[in-house]
Design a protein around this nucleic acid. Structure first.
Length: 376
DNA sequence: ATAGATGATTGGGC
DNA sequence: GCCCAATCATCTAT
């Protein structure tokens, strides 16, 4: 009687297990878990800490967006804190894994024990182990999530670009201003010009700092980490880190975001308050005039690689009250302008009309403006 | 301590 | 993808 009952039970069991398996098949690869893993990997948290020459090994991955050359105290502080997070993460992970192993063994033993009095198929054992692993995976995910959050907070505190703001050097400002005022009719440097300006001004030509190009970082954001309260700003443009895969798919960012920022700010501020910049404009225009005479004849043009981006011909549409002086300036700087409809290479945006009432004449052979502006 | 200057970020437009 | 305009956050001169 007993063996017969046992075999019936076995049959029932088999059916039950099959039905369970039918209901919950293996989960598809968890996208969020992958994201977390990728982020931890990218931040250098997922890898166990390398002993020995700490810092350099960590720094390479720990400053994806900050100031690569900024070996400040804050940076070592950042690395130390990141290292702490890493240690905690790995020790917790180890704990969870061990607990998982122990619990699995315990349950397996228990099932084996029970298999003497009731039918326990290998599949059922497998299923139980799977359930346990699933539970521990969930716990692991929580751990990873909180680790990510900790890293985010750390990044925001130490690497926020705004907090790191440094004024450009005098040389850099001069170079930029010279270009700006000598291309006043069309102050939109091309990518090459920006690089050249950055080089000349000693501005570090970096990849976009983590905080400087929000759009790239936002394309594939998970829900977490968007810009937060002002007291604890999440790292400006890097609310969330991208997976390496996502990084690879993204477009190449501008190589000179600082220069672009500078020109953006300059154009806006100049336009808003031309009067205020009048003096500065004069200084730079006369400066370039002197340079031009030093270099040679007014027609000397060959040496400047800096050309505006939106076509080499800069044009005016005279919409501001200072038309007369604009004309004068345009004439003085040998720049063409037009009264009628704008040509295709019209300065972009709303710059038209912002051309200034320069009180002195601009040189003919300035830093490329005459060359580039007049070349057409 | 404060105001103004300045570099960076953001949201929207094209 | 770049630009403008507004704004933020920090630096600097006073």
């Amino acid at each position: 009687m007993k063996p017969a009952l046992f075999s019936v039970l076995c049959e029932l069991k088999e059916k039950t297990v099959l039905s369970i398996r039918g209901v919950q098949e293996e989960d598809p690869p968890d996208a969020q878990l992958m994201r977390l893993d990728n982020m931890l990997l990218a931040e250098g948290v997922a890898r166990p800490e390398r002993r020995g020459r700490r810092g350099s090994a960590v720094a390479g991955t720990a400053t994806p967006g900050g100031c690569p050359n900024d070996n400040s105290i804050e940076h070592s502080d950042y690395r130390a804190k990141l290292s702490q997070i890493r240690q905690i993460y790995h020790s917790e992970l180890e704990k969870y894994e061990q607990a998982c192993r122990e619990f699995t063994t315990h349950v397996t033993n228990l099932l084996r024990e029970q298999s003497r009095v009731r039918p326990v198929s290998p599949k059922e054992m497998e299923h139980m182990v799977g359930v346990i692993h699933g539970k521990f995976r969930a716990i692991q995910m929580q751990l990873k999530q909180s680790t990510c959050e900790a890293v985010m907070t750390l990044r925001s505190r130490f690497l926020d670009a705004r907090r790191k703001r440094r004024n450009f050097s005098k040389q850099a400002t001069e170079v930029l201003n010279e270009y700006f005022y000598s291309h006043l009719s069309n102050p939109y440097p091309s990518e090459e010009a920006k690089e050249e300006l950055a080089r000349k001004g000693g501005i570090t030509v970096s990849q976009v700092p983590a905080g400087s190009s929000r759009r790239q970082y936002r394309a594939d954001l998970p829900a977490q980490g968007v810009r937060s309260d002002p007291g604890e700003p999440v790292h400006g443009g890097a609310p969330v880190m991208r997976s390496p895969a996502a990084t690879a798919a993204l477009p190449v960012p501008s190589m000179c975001p600082q220069v672009s920022n500078w020109f953006g700010n300059k154009r806006i501020r100049y336009k808003k308050n031309m009067g205020k910049f009048q003096e500065e404009a004069n200084v730079y225009v006369s400066k370039t005039a002197v340079d031009a005479t030093k270099v040679g004849s007014p027609g000397h043009q060959a040496s400047c690689p800096l050309t505006p981006s939106s076509g080499s011909s800069s044009t005016f549409s005279l919409t501001c009250p200072e038309d007369a002086s604009v004309s004068l300036q345009a004439l003085a700087s040998d720049q063409p302008f037009q009264m009628g409809p704008r040509s295709q290479s019209q300065p972009r945006g709303s710059w038209r009309g912002a051309t200034p009432p320069l009180s002195i004449t601009s040189p003919a052979g300035d830093l490329g403006s005459a060359h580039s502006d007049a070349s057409s």
